[in-house]
Nucleic acid binder design. Sequence first.
DNA 1: TGTACATCAGTGAACGCGCGTTCACTGATGTAC
DNA 2: TGTACATCAGTGAACGCGCGTTCACTGATGTAC
Lengths: 209, 209
Amino acid sequence: MRDAHSAESRPYHHGDLRRALVDAARRLLEAEGPSALSLRAVAREAGVSPAAPYHHFKDKAELLDAVAHEGWLMLNTRMREAKARQQGRQQLTALGIAYVCFAREHPALYRVMYDAARDKEALPIDTENPDEESAYCMVRETMVEHGADPTAQTELELATIASWCAAHGLAEMAGFKQFSEMKDALGGEQAFIAAVLQHMGLFPHAHRD
Amino acid sequence: MRDAHSAESRPYHHGDLRRALVDAARRLLEAEGPSALSLRAVAREAGVSPAAPYHHFKDKAELLDAVAHEGWLMLNTRMREAKARQQGRQQLTALGIAYVCFAREHPALYRVMYDAARDKEALPIDTENPDEESAYCMVRETMVEHGADPTAQTELELATIASWCAAHGLAEMAGFKQFSEMKDALGGEQAFIAAVLQHMGLFPHAHRD
DNA sequence: TGTACATCAGTGAACGCGCGTTCACTGATGTAC
DNA sequence: TGTACATCAGTGAACGCGCGTTCACTGATGTAC
């Protein structure tokens, strides 16, 4: 649990401690939640002294940023794959479901992603790297592919924002006990998610994955 | 700033320290954000020793619960008033806008409210006290008043959940820098909020307050 | 191929800090007679 | 109305804790000659 190498096999130099630290942070998040994510705990989890991370990150915030960044990349991938699996307007639905399911499967990571974004007051939705399209841009583009008018910029942007907010809201709500009766009635959390997204009118004909 | 009484006027016994602590916590939240909300800081802000709160709250969590509870009451009031100011279907819109605006005006309190809820995995939407109707129930009821079929229970509940999630998502997103251009184009944050809510299709004919 | 040496990437001890909580205490209040 | 006393609601000092960060250090690596 503490580190992947046995004590003797591990060399003094790590090889790629930066990677190992980000991975350790993710493991900690899954296991203990965001409140357990201290620099010292991450170093401990990676099997390294508390000072070691400072050779790879300026401070705690920079490590957290790296973890968050990785989260966004994971989300992008997840959504790209979900879209590729569908045809036509179903693609929008698939994007919405993929978004919410990602957040539900990695609630602590999702939280860290938005905490980091809030600290900067900026969502990582701008595509600096053109071949790593952001999830946000993917939603907008998919809307255009399926009939939204790309010249009506304000409309298009508003529709994208609305979808994004709706999915985020559902992602944060879906865990509450009050909805478990409804989930059961509909046949599980996935069905619940699809049903709520459908009601939001932004993801037409939502259905189960 | 530290406490309302001058040093000499303040009696040894406080009168209503419980109230004063909750108020101090709210002041701290507005001024410094959720991360500044320690038990000791609250006691300090209320002008009292670090041990004093323990005569009124079992532990820190109980104090936070009280702060969160007060937040929900404020939100209820705010939404009830917003609804009363409108007629017909505009009422739903007014509820949505009131919700988001409350969250935007008290972002730290809003955060504490949901953090407390998440700890219990339960939203405070059940109406134990029948004459203090929860905001959530108000939304559902308003939908019924304006044409939703109260016998189609699942439909009604899903629509309410969808509205709630959508508003929550927007409330959490509205602060990001990426949207400031859009806000300016639409004439301010209120207009932006109204426009996004309208796009969500749950709050028909959203317009400015 | 071998050696000197600069650089890199770790260690572990220490720093000061604010935290939640407990404790023995004491001043103020209210009630019984 | 006055007094004894139980109870209530504060104080302030202390506890142990984990945190982020710094520091002087050292082991390992890689490069120049």
